[in-house]
Simulated scan of single mutants.
Amino acid sequence: MAIDVDAARQDTRGTAHATHLDSAGSSLMPRPVADAVVAHLRREELVGGYAAAAEAAERLEAVYSSLARLIGSSPGEIAVLESGSTAWAAAVSRLRPAAPRVLLGRTEYWHNVLVLRRLARRDGLELVVLDDDAHGQVDVAHLRRELDRGDVGMVALTHVPMGGAQVQPAAEVGRACRAAGVPFVLDACQSAGQLPLDVQELGCDVLVGTGRKFLRGPRGTAFVHVRRELLDRLEPELSERRSPARDAGEGRARLLESWETGVAARLGLGRAVDHALELGPEPIRDRVRALAESLRGRLAALPAVQVHDRGLVRCGIVTFSVRDRPPDRVQAHLAGQRITVSTAPLPPPAAEQVLDPAPEHQTVAVRASVHYYNTEEELDRLAAALS
């Protein structure tokens, strides 16, 4: 069923104030999500944080069920944290590879690379950057050759890079990892909310997502799925994380959580997930993809604009540059016309630059990221502002 765009915009207060093309950074919350956050804060104002949390216990527990439905997981395999980077590091740091080599893609998120470098120093690991194929996606044939060596302890992949449109062939990677018995960690922070996700089909052992991007949740929310067979390898780092209920097994993934957290934001995350499920992940994907391709066509028609997107399968992120104009200047120019975009580094061309994500190695582009509440008229506005 097609998405009712007019209804979606009426439900999104921010669309009346600006053309928002930055869902890859932080999307606009729908009205029910913002209302859920504010309502809980008002309750905390009246009765205090602990009493308000106790009243919301059933709704808080339902957040895990909603997330499980979103990604084909189970509530006991999910933890809710405060950021995608924190969630990724918390899970990966506790799942020590059983073999010395860790494989990662060229589009791996820079914070993930820094965590892997720290683990490599601590545990004597070797980090191996996989080749890209001709389409700018991870070369699955290269992955299989590396797995055939038999000394791989983990494979890490970012599903959608922060500075690119390509959707990595995660399901193919997952099948290869399952066949080799190697844990597969998928960073889905840019894909959760704009693409359908199913951890069984993807074959990932760990999946990390964030709330503020395409899921349209509040800032300060993220989640991580850890496959049940790996849960016994999780141990808390802080004493405040341990509780008998979490140690008991069914909710063991929650050992990754901190006890003290923002309850209002968690409730907002749950409402955002329910909102996405009500619309349907497939209709969201189809509209986002169509809008992004429409925008690429507009930008490609402008003589001074170069579109950088690659990939056999592309998503709602569109990266481009304007001749003789620095990306931050383009961003500021558009902001002056109430058009919100961001900037992001493009994937580095060399493997050694992936392992050393320093600013001097980065080529930065302008990033426009559409969502289902955007319109063709807003894309026209962006193209006109650039021309």
Rank of each mutant, 00 (worst) to 15 (best):
T210I: 06
G336R: 05
A358D: 10
A56G: 09
D309V: 06
T12A: 02
A24I: 13
A134N: 11
G150V: 13
L46Q: 02
L70T: 09
A8Y: 07
L277R: 04
V307Q: 07
R285C: 08
P326Y: 03
A156K: 05
E282M: 11
R329P: 05
K213M: 04
G280W: 11
A99I: 07
G72A: 02
D198L: 12
D35E: 11
W259Y: 10
G203T: 10
A264K: 01
D205W: 04
Q168I: 05
G25F: 02
Q194A: 09
R175A: 10
P281Q: 04
E201P: 07
I3L: 15
D131C: 10
E282C: 00
E235M: 03
L186M: 11
Q190M: 14
P348L: 09
L116Y: 04
D247K: 00
L28W: 12
G181V: 14
Q166M: 13
E126I: 05
R122V: 14
H225C: 08
A7D: 08
R216N: 08
C315L: 14
A171L: 11
R241C: 15
V313T: 08
V313N: 00
V224M: 07
L269S: 09
R314Q: 13
Q10G: 05
R298Y: 15
R242M: 02
A276N: 15
V305W: 05
L95H: 04
A344M: 09
H135Q: 01
E146V: 07
A68I: 06
A272M: 04
E260Y: 09
L119W: 04
R59Y: 01
A54G: 09
L130W: 14
Q137R: 10
C189L: 12
V273F: 06
L302A: 09
R121C: 10
E201G: 13
A179S: 11
G76A: 05
L279G: 00
V47C: 00
L104Y: 01
V263W: 07
V115T: 09
R43E: 12
P359M: 02
V128L: 09
A171H: 10
A53N: 06
A248T: 03
R149V: 07
S258K: 15
T363W: 09
G193E: 08
G297A: 05
E201Q: 14
D198R: 15
A365R: 01
A170D: 03
S65A: 11
A264F: 09
S243P: 07
L41Y: 11
V288D: 00
G262L: 15
